[in-house]
Simulated scan of single mutants.
Amino acid sequence: MSQGRGFSVNQDVNDAVVVRDVSRVFEVRKGASVTALDDVSLTVAPGEFVSLIGRSGCGKSTLLRLIADLDTPTSGSIEVFGKPARQARIDQDYGIAFQQAGLLPWRTVTGNIELPLELHGVGTAARRARAAELIELVGLTEFARSYPDQLSGGMQQRVAIARALAERPSLLLMDEPFGALDEMTRERMQDELVRICAETNAAVVFVTHSIPEAVFLSDRVVVLEPRPGRIRSVLSVNLGRAAARGEDLREDEGFFQSVSQVRELLHGAPAAGARGVETR
């Protein structure tokens, strides 16, 4: 068992993500540094949806980048499905989606989704079949031959999610993918993501600033405190299986209660149902 700021990691060989005693210190200038994360430990189970939430500068995106092996911890370790994060990246065990869809403007919807498969040498027929499957999954069949500038912001994000799923990852890493969308589109995208996760059974680590979004999507909400970034508390969201979550949930009393609990935790107040010891 590994200890980290009052949180412990109970590791299972099948865990999707294990973050153990991770710190990240950035050198900002000679002789000066900023501690973005301090001794953070967390586990994510297969098929689990975990949101990271906290004030700006609390290290949410830094933690996501470390899991994705886009950055390296100053100390501590990270494993993805029992592998070092770097090996998991090489093996394409996860897909990534960011706030900006990042689609190639000269490629169609199909072409953008095919890109990671093409880069890894998948044959044309197999690429087309997988792209068609994912386009149907995200509800864009009639736009398969469209270009990004012909799509709305929400549709572009659906393409980005489909692209992240192209290689059938067992883990999705998502950094505020709906942050630039209007509220109505954002809620529709949340509904879509819940459905997609239920169908693919992928684990998700999701960064957001939105409390209602974190509650609606998640099995657990991890609340981080600001610099140095540490886990303040972990709240289990008991609102039923993802596949059963729909528009009506946003009017449910349990939903509002969970939103209030997360809000209290963000402001440093204790909330019933939150745990300050176990990370899973």
Score class of each variant (00 low, 15 high):
residue 116 P to F: 09
residue 169 P to C: 08
residue 279 T to N: 06
residue 264 E to I: 07
residue 189 M to N: 06
residue 214 A to P: 03
residue 169 P to I: 02
residue 180 A to I: 11
residue 144 A to N: 00
residue 250 R to D: 07
residue 50 V to T: 05
residue 182 D to T: 13
residue 9 V to D: 01
residue 112 N to M: 09
residue 247 E to N: 11
residue 142 E to N: 11
residue 221 V to D: 00
residue 86 R to S: 15
residue 97 A to R: 03
residue 204 V to T: 02
residue 124 T to I: 11
residue 50 V to P: 01
residue 1 M to S: 14
residue 63 L to K: 00
residue 6 G to M: 06
residue 256 F to I: 09
residue 178 F to C: 05
residue 250 R to L: 11
residue 118 E to K: 10
residue 139 G to D: 07
residue 232 R to L: 12
residue 26 F to R: 08
residue 279 T to K: 07
residue 178 F to P: 02
residue 5 R to W: 05
residue 8 S to G: 14
residue 221 V to N: 00
residue 70 L to W: 00
residue 124 T to D: 14
residue 21 D to I: 11
residue 219 D to N: 15
residue 156 Q to P: 08
residue 120 H to L: 08
residue 110 T to K: 06
residue 242 A to G: 13
residue 26 F to M: 07
residue 49 F to D: 00
residue 263 R to K: 11
residue 221 V to T: 04
residue 141 T to C: 06
residue 158 R to G: 05
residue 11 Q to K: 13
residue 80 V to I: 15
residue 252 D to K: 08
residue 222 V to D: 04
residue 85 A to E: 06
residue 30 K to I: 12
residue 83 K to S: 10
residue 66 L to R: 05
residue 228 P to D: 04
residue 85 A to T: 12
residue 122 V to P: 04
residue 29 R to W: 13
residue 275 R to E: 15
residue 274 A to K: 06
residue 168 R to G: 10
residue 87 Q to L: 14
residue 135 I to M: 03
residue 14 N to P: 09
residue 86 R to Y: 13
residue 245 R to S: 06
residue 167 E to L: 14
residue 229 G to W: 03
residue 159 V to G: 02
residue 231 I to A: 03
residue 62 T to D: 01
residue 55 R to P: 04
residue 157 Q to V: 08
residue 268 G to V: 11
residue 76 G to F: 01
residue 275 R to N: 15
residue 171 L to M: 10
residue 50 V to L: 10
residue 61 S to K: 08
residue 176 E to W: 05
residue 123 G to E: 14
residue 246 G to I: 04
residue 152 S to P: 02
residue 185 T to F: 06
residue 270 P to A: 07
residue 145 R to V: 12
residue 256 F to K: 14
residue 270 P to F: 12
residue 224 L to I: 11
residue 204 V to Y: 02
residue 33 S to I: 04
residue 256 F to G: 15
residue 240 G to C: 09
residue 147 Y to R: 06
residue 59 G to E: 04
residue 223 V to G: 03
